[in-house]
């Protein structure tokens, strides 16, 4: 494929949205209140809408029989390149919110830069997505503050979620081969440059939320190279169920 690096680069962006959108979709109808239920579904819808734009673009690059759905549903686990953070389960509402928050801060910084890409399709997707991502950031940051500085119970739950999910944050700033190639061409975002701003914003919100910022040097990685946590196989099992059980059909 001529544009293999670009293709892989797009998947590197969009797989995060797909897997996070899928996780949020699990919660629809089970939220702590109608309002939060609607909001989480909304975020899922936004992310999946963005996924469709990215994959449609990627499928054109790949040509042949590739479609947005073959990219979404017909890869093997090792071929998904989302970060480990987004595949973490909905242990409780604290984990859902913290996972969202840790992703949203990154997502906004990332889209801000992607708007300047030399690739006009990516620029257009970034411009549309950042409006949505900004709303997501407001929602998840507000809930981190609310639950962090709510009751002792909610504070403990948010603290636990932060302590356990923190280990997945560093991977957001790792570069793949495709990333490096695309940065060189002025198409991709140099994520290494986003890192200090990211932790600055995250720490600020956590401090307001009366949450202790974890002090660790140990981080997990692997998602960007297709090596996932044990949760991923089950998530894909569900997501790919129809396509695997009834191959080659239109729905």
């Amino acid at each position: 494929m001529k544009n293999e690096n670009l293709y892989n680069y797009i998947l590197g962006i969009a797989d995060n949205n797909l897997i996070l959108g899928q996780r949020l979709g699990e919660l629809c109808g089970h939220g702590p209140s109608l309002e939060t239920d609607i909001a989480c579904t909304n975020i899922s819808l936004d992310l999946l809408g963005q996924v469709r734009s990215y994959y449609q673009y990627a499928s054109k690059l790949k040509g042949e029989e590739t479609t947005e759905d073959s990219i979404a549903f017909l890869r093997k686990e090792r071929e998904y390149v989302n970060v480990l953070l987004v595949e973490q389960p909905n242990t409780d509402f604290a984990y859902t919110i913290v996972r969202q928050f840790l992703f949203d801060i990154y997502h906004n910084l990332f889209l801000e830069e992607l708007q300047k890409s030399h690739d006009i399709t990516l620029t257009a997707i970034a411009k549309k997505s950042i409006k949505e991502a900004n709303y997501h950031k407001r929602f998840s940051s507000d809930w981190v503050r609310r639950l962090g500085d709510g009751t002792p119970e909610s504070n403990a739950k948010i603290q636990e979620a932060i302590d356990n999910l923190w280990t997945y944050t560093d991977e957001l700033f790792h570069q793949t081969e495709a990333d490096k190639a695309m940065v060189k061409e002025g198409i991709g975002v140099d994520v290494t440059l986003l890192k200090s701003k990211y932790y600055e914003i995250v720490n600020e919100v956590l401090t307001e939320a009366t949450i202790t910022v974890p002090d660790t040097k140990w981080f997990q990685k692997g998602g960007k190279n297709g090596i996932h946590t044990e949760h991923m196989g089950y998530l894909l099992n569900d997501m790919q169920f129809m396509q695997r059980t009834y191959p080659n059909m239109e729905w």
């Binding site: 089970h30 939220g31 702590p32 209140s33 639950l147 909610s154």
Partner: peptide, 15 residues
């Protein structure tokens, strides 16, 4: 869903 969400609603009120 309602019971598991109780702490969230309580925290929102407290905040």
């Amino acid at each position: 869903a309602w019971e598991r969400g109780a702490w969230v609603r309580d925290a929102a009120m407290a905040h």
